[in-house]
Design a protein around this nucleic acid. Sequence first.
DNA 1: ACCTGAACACCGTTCAAGT
DNA 2: ACCTGAACACCGTTCAAGT
Lengths: 176, 176
Amino acid sequence: MRGTGHDLEGIVDAALELLDAFGLPDLSMRRLATHLGVQPSALYWHVENKQSLLAAVADRIVSEAAPATGVRETARALRDALLNRRDGAEVVVSTAALSLGSDALEARIRSAYEAAGSADPARDATVLAQFVLGHTYLVQQRMQAAAIGAYDADPADVAAATRADFEAGIDRLTTP
Amino acid sequence: MRGTGHDLEGIVDAALELLDAFGLPDLSMRRLATHLGVQPSALYWHVENKQSLLAAVADRIVSEAAPATGVRETARALRDALLNRRDGAEVVVSTAALSLGSDALEARIRSAYEAAGSADPARDATVLAQFVLGHTYLVQQRMQAAAIGAYDADPADVAAATRADFEAGIDRLTTP
DNA sequence: ACCTGAACACCGTTCAAGT
DNA sequence: ACCTGAACACCGTTCAAGT
């Protein structure tokens, strides 16, 4: 954790650690700097601002999705990747206009539609990506509420109980 | 704007004005207090914290959706209500676990499914609500990016161009 | 090239005290 | 009942200066 030789990759690593440990609301530039053993201002040598850092975090989260073939399998892999990081969906959605993350997510779905011989893979991918992100965001929010105790359920149970909703969604959105 | 006799309703009114004028990132408790001609601490007599205030704002946004019959018409009315307020979708999604807003949105869709004779209105409504929120959030983010100039399109055009995506989505999600 | 130190302009929230 | 004043513990970001 000495303050020498950091690069963007290492900063994203550290940001993901804080994200999983404390959640997005507590992921501040100052905490991140402390975690790296560095002054807050040092981060701005490597990163333009917090928004672009979060975009890089989003890209990384999406890139961690397992390889998959088929539209449904791809959608599941992407959902799993978002669920695998605390507040993962929120990070990806909130930086969608800046990061490649959301584009990468949609692009992977589009490739799957193309391979499946869709008549309009671009539109199909847009629609399914919007569902995947909306679904996962809301699921993850309920998980967080459950962890706080505002919601009377176990966080892990929430994920399980909502899997059927997700399957119903991709079922309708993948069979024309 | 004198500092006498405010209630939650009036505070939500003022918050919506600031939201439309400056967007969610610039909607702070301090700015809101200034807008109301009052000290920041005065707000905490009427509201527990910022989160619950945003939840009340979310409820109001959803409540402004036009009455509609039919699943598709209901989904369109809700999308329009979110698009009608700057960052409306983000406000509703981000307070989904706290506010009635997201529940109200899903409840309205559920009623429409029930009236249409759905075999599983609860699941259908959950899935469609997730799509409506995900879709609208991403559309609105592109509109905001277009307004900043980061996206090479007119904000109004973005809304128009994405309407076809929305129709494609509700088409798949409403016809079993 | 990479980081520190110090500052600027902000936040949300609490709480005694006023009226 | 409703609000002020003042404080606490934070933010993101900039920029001269150090090495």
